[in-house]
Amino acid sequence: MQQHILEIKNLSKSYGETVALANFSLDLGKGEVLGLLGPNGAGKTTLISILSGTLRDFTGSVTFKGQDLFADRGLKNLIGIVPQEMAFYEDLNATENLLFWGGLYAIPEKELKKRARELLALVELGARAREPVKKFSGGMKRRLNVAIGLIHRPELLLLDEPTVGIDVQAKMSILDIIRNVGREGTSVVFTTHQLSEVEQTCARIAIMDRGTILAQGTLAELIRIVGEKEVVEVSGEFSAAAFSAIIQQFDGNGMEVLSVTDNQAHLAFADPERIPAMMQHLFQRHLPIADLKIKSPNLEAVFLKMTGRSLRD
């Protein structure tokens, strides 16, 4: 049985009437890369804030390597964080930033300098190491942000939406870094609301919404939740109420309504041959449909099934 490096049990946190985390439980193995997938407001950042010790007044427990994470300050030496913000000094250069943030972990200076060089090479910033960070592009800054989280060789790395606001190329580069870190034995918790990112990067995926985990497993395991069904995405100028009323009149044998919102609906079909009949039913009732897509079973379908809403909501 794999020993868990991180165990979160029944974590709950509320902001007044709003529940951010509700009996949230999760565990993570050594070297495992876990993608925490959820829409905005799902509770991802609250979870990272609690793990990083900047949010209090919660219930539940978090153990790291079998010890209470919040009781032993020494454990902080073993955990790295990559916050959503570009948390570094823009008026310093990349090397100076790494040496400063690494210095907080009491790493010997010689080793720290060596580690800084290695990391700059890993995030492909070696050639720009002496330039002030304020001259960097958004992608370069994001890569430096990740490098700082790794400067003290953490056993657990927490990344809070590390790819926000950057182009595709920079995003791919960061996802590569995350995969490499996982391969080297560092456990990673990686929050995002981009399905493609977790599909490409994570060995295990947890879908969370409204402060709790709805489903978790490998990509294949999660897709089995939906089953081998075709997913139809219907778009147009209709209201959720109008669509629901019309689709209820359709003989839904083998069809599952995954989600319905204004202008968009997702339906899963066990028998793809029923799709044309469904389309005819919609057209006959003059539902203003603009687009219709048929998709193979994927994580998005799982997410829609589990949360009843799209990640863009």
Partner: peptide
């Protein structure tokens, strides 16, 4: 505001 304090507080710095 820009997250540096959060990062610092996550280190062994008190």
């Amino acid at each position: 505001a820009d997250g540096k304090t959060r990062r610092m507080m996550f280190s062994p710095l008190s």
